[in-house]
């Protein structure tokens, strides 16, 4: 599904990723944990194609394609989805219109017919139910005036509609209280499946109580320094990041 090899990336001429390797197979959920400034969000952004990051080495292949060669929209159409840590507010852009444009862009890319308004509304209603989302959110401009929890749920709702092959959740737990976290996690779990992989980027173990990963990786100073099963997350929760970072340095 996704294969990252020796990935190096800079922001403002400062190297953030220093040779990162990661392999994600179909249906797997990988957690990427690490201290602040370790490069977690940079990894998420480089994979989704955000401007301002310069890849200086390594390769990323996604579904057999050179991901780094593609525009963000093409990556999305191929099945990559980034749930933003800070979802962007789009004043004047109606949420329903936005979702329909996104879904139809993807369908068009794959040579499928665009959905008409009625089929689209039906699909939306069905996905809303799964996520227990209030449909009033759909009539408002994208993320404008949404609470932190609503913004994150809107991200997961987009994911439910776009049905990505690989979803990257960037600090999806940040800014959420425990109830909102549970709702978001339930939404994510409902979308798990043998064809859908996920990369869950998080600072805290808390989220992983709800979204149980198959693998946990520790990212520090731009490299993955330790990989393991879900028990690694518990160990990190207990002991913090210091010991692993020290061990890796030794």
């Amino acid at each position: 599904m996704l294969s990252v090899k020796g990935l190096k990336a800079e922001v403002d001429e400062k190297e953030i990723l220093k040779g990162l390797d990661l392999d994600v197979g179909a249906g797997e959920v990988h957690a990427i944990m690490g201290p602040n400034g370790s490069g977690k969000s940079t990894l998420a952004h480089v994979l989704s194609g955000r401007e301002g990051y310069e890849v200086t080495g390594g390769s990323v292949s996604f579904e057999g394609k050179d991901l780094l060669d593609l525009d963000p929209e093409e990556r999305a159409c191929l099945g990559l989805f980034l749930a933003f840590q800070y979802p962007v507010e789009l004043p004047g852009v109606n949420n329903t219109y936005f979702l329909k444009a996104a879904l139809n862009a993807k369908r068009k890319y794959h040579g499928e017919e665009e959905l008409d308004a009625v089929s689209f509304m039906r699909l939306m209603k069905e996905r809303l139910k799964v996520l227990h989302l209030d449909d009033s959110l759909l009539k408002r401009p994208v993320n404008v005036g949404f609470s932190g929890g609503e913004k994150k749920r809107n991200e997961i709702f987009q994911m439910a509609l776009l049905e990505p092959k690989l979803a990257i959740l960037d600090e999806t737990d940040s800014g959420l209280d425990i109830d909102a976290l549970r709702v978001v996690a339930n939404g994510v779990n409902a979308l798990r499946g043998p064809e859908r992989s996920m990369i869950v980027v998080t600072h805290y173990q808390r989220l992983l109580d709800y979204i149980e990963p198959d693998y946990v990786h520790v990212l520090a100073k731009g490299r993955i320094i330790r990989s393991g099963g879900k028990e690694l997350a518990l160990e990190l929760e207990e002991k913090g990041y210091g010991w692993i970072v020290d061990e890796a340095a030794a």
Binding site: P72, R75, A76, C77, L90
Partner: peptide, 18 residues
């Protein structure tokens, strides 16, 4: 804002228009 739309698969020209 442009990146947010593009990251959802919306082509750049349409995203700018939106």
């Amino acid at each position: 804002k442009l990146f947010y739309l593009r990251s959802r698969g919306i082509p750049q020209a349409l995203a700018r228009r939106m």
